[in-house]
Amino acid sequence: MAWKAIDRVNAPTEESPSLSEPLKEKIRGFFDRYPTKRAVLIPALHMIQDDHGYVGWKAMEEVAELLEITPSDVFDTVSFYSHFWTHPKGEKVVMACRSISCDLLGADRVLDECKKVLGIGDHETTPDGKYSLMTEECLAACDHGPCLMINEKMHKCVDPANVRKILEDDANDKLDIPRSNLYDGANRTSA
């Protein structure tokens, strides 16, 4: 072709993980919650991302088959939501709030500090695969800005000076409350 174009005619060459049988079973477990199979898509994508760390091409294709929709339907939905990653991300995602309250309370300094400590930019992953960084709009904890969320755990009133300490803490993404495993991926590979 005379011009450079993204190729959609050929299947992607990069490898990406398949859905394991237990994961599929877990997804099927959601079928009776909704009148359509398609409605299980977003819960399924959560489980897939939990299990694989991201939602790759193969997973999209397989979940499409499972839910009897087209892979492009899945691609469409996955790409709409900021929560889903279509390429591998780190074990932990650091989500820095950038909306108004946090911003006025110094969110940009917190973000800069995260970038410095981790040595990565927005939507990038550390070479050791431990952390990815992203910004998000208001995390609904504006009374405690600036906020950082690490996987499930919210860090409130973050002082840039404490960022390093927070990021060095192994348990910085752990919730210490009774929890439900309903949405978790089947065989969580990530810690």
């Binding site: 959609r8 892979p71 899945v74 691609f75 469409d76």
Partner: peptide
């Protein structure tokens, strides 16, 4: 009824696209 095309992303970044390997 084949649904090859989709919309990806949102807002001003929205684009028309097809799933790789499942072209129009």
């Amino acid at each position: 009824g084949t649904g090859e095309l989709c919309i990806t992303n949102r807002g001003s970044k929205a684009e028309i696209d097809a799933f790789p390997g499942k072209p129009l």
